[in-house]
């Protein structure tokens, strides 16, 4: 069952890293109505640069079927230089370079395919910058 509507509405965040900076400093990707930190509703729209640091990571050996052709692959929690947190798959990098503290840069990649006839899903992945 194609979820093209669900996919389409996330495009600004996944394709262009459009995020919000609330007046309390919290950065949200995707958008929220209210900051989880202080409850402020004041924010400005920002675009993340795509540069960040790995806070933690794992190598996934047993993925769900959607990602089975990619296994094993690394996934990381990344803090961007603006201070936003996000989770991303790591691509085009050696496992030995995937470490806590490693610098990464987000790139535009295909995330998954909805079977042989469904839509193609794109978004960000991270590459370790050496």
């Amino acid at each position: 069952m194609a979820n093209s509507q669900r996919y389409t509405r996330e495009i600004p965040h996944r394709f262009r890293l459009e995020a919000q900076r609330f007046s309390d400093g919290y950065i949200s990707l995707p958008n929220r109505y209210i900051s989880p930190e202080t409850g402020t509703k004041e924010f400005e729209n920002i675009t993340l640069s795509g540069k960040g640091t790995i806070l933690s990571y794992t190598i996934v050996h047993t993925p769900s079927d959607q990602f089975k052709l990619a296994k094993p692959y690394a996934v990381a929690i990344i803090e961007t230089e603006e201070g936003a947190r996000l989770t991303s798959m790591i691509t085009d990098s050696e496992f030995e370079d995937v470490k806590i503290g490693a610098k990464v840069e987000l790139v535009f990649r295909k995330i998954m395919e909805e079977g042989h006839s469904g839509i193609l899903n794109y978004g960000y992945k991270a590459i370790v910058v050496k």
Binding site: P63, T87, S88, M89, I111
Partner: peptide, 9 residues
Amino acid sequence: EYEAYAGVT
């Protein structure tokens, strides 16, 4: 949309 989509289990 923001964790499972990244392939995390």
